[in-house]
Nucleic acid binder design. Sequence first.
DNA 1: TCAGTTCTATAGTGGTTGCTATACATAGCG
DNA 2: CGCTATGTATAGCAACCACTATAGAACTGA
Lengths: 215, 215
Amino acid sequence: MNLPSAAPSTVPRPSKGRPRGFDRSEALERALDVFWRLGYEPATIAELCTAMGINPPSLYAAFGNKAKLFLEAVDFYDRKYWDAARVALEEEADVYPGIESFFADAAAILLSPRAPCGCLVVLAAINVSPESTEVYEAVRSMRRAGKTFFAQRLQRGVEDGQLPASTDIAVLAATLKAMLEGMSIQARDGIGQAELAGVAAHVIKLLPPRSTQHP
Amino acid sequence: MNLPSAAPSTVPRPSKGRPRGFDRSEALERALDVFWRLGYEPATIAELCTAMGINPPSLYAAFGNKAKLFLEAVDFYDRKYWDAARVALEEEADVYPGIESFFADAAAILLSPRAPCGCLVVLAAINVSPESTEVYEAVRSMRRAGKTFFAQRLQRGVEDGQLPASTDIAVLAATLKAMLEGMSIQARDGIGQAELAGVAAHVIKLLPPRSTQHP
DNA sequence: TCAGTTCTATAGTGGTTGCTATACATAGCG
DNA sequence: CGCTATGTATAGCAACCACTATAGAACTGA
């Protein structure tokens, strides 16, 4: 749980002046919970401060502003909840069981009992006012990165001779990403764990039949 | 384009006092555009009024409040953009081509050039503040109705001997709905028309192999 | 013409938002 | 102890929100 700080500072304690009276990482996780539950704009500074156990000036001194706090929380969420599943998909040599277990993992992550469910990247900043465009763009680029991640893994599957060379990688990656994002909405809308796992199990059918060619 | 009014009033003109100075249906469509573009909460009364060409008192006299205006706009959207696709799926006797062309229709609807894309029911009120709970519940129940619609059509497919009797209808309906909702997010994020059509074409693979039994 | 009724426009209401000015507290360093 | 630097707490800023009170305008029916 000893994660590297996102701040560009080198050491944890330059130490001069009054030291900070709260744990920055812990406060960030509390903020994450609020954003997860409410979304970016509905989460107010007052509610964030209450959950973080601090006052507005401390929040602004430590995180800059609401948008930066949110982006840092999203980044933290993405790494904490999704890194393991991504690594597993990278390390699994066969793309078929790789995708299969990635979506099984996703079903479990999306119904994590910590929050009211669904992926923060997908749900927290879908409909925001025009003055929060930068936040919207940021989460959208994270979603695009997810699609690219699928595409790269599928490409490797083709190169390894598992997927047929005729596979339309861009479309298939978009299909998988759409499925993952739709599962977020199902999770938010209160689907049961067994049912979501069943949905995830359907995903493997979207892949083309295994290639009979060798690489 | 002569749609029945959602209001419980019987005739178009009870006529007494000063007549309304704007077309109610036209104003509703203008409001729909704003909600579609911005979402429920980011859309302000001022912006809605500008688009509708009226002032706040007229808006409140004609539609009640912001929440009622939104729900009426969503209802209008759902009927205008989705009724035809639903009817086609009902009337197609074979569930396989029925689902296939429903999703092809959906891909076209979701990239309708009218708005910045995606389904209003899915995207406009995903992350709202706690005081808009009734609006969130309303769109969520519309989403659930969409899932139920899929389930009923699949059930008929089983009864007609097209789908195998072993089909898990609840899970398959949830899978199709997740796909449809994920396509909304892809549309919002700027996917191309051909690519989204390709995604839609993948959906048919989610159905089990056609049953060989007769009804 | 003159009520009676309904819609419209101006101008605001109280409440909430993200954010901060000011004053004070707590640290290292001489 | 000062002196400087940084964090914290209170209180409040201007801007914006959904919504409405008031007054006047436009119609019907007599």
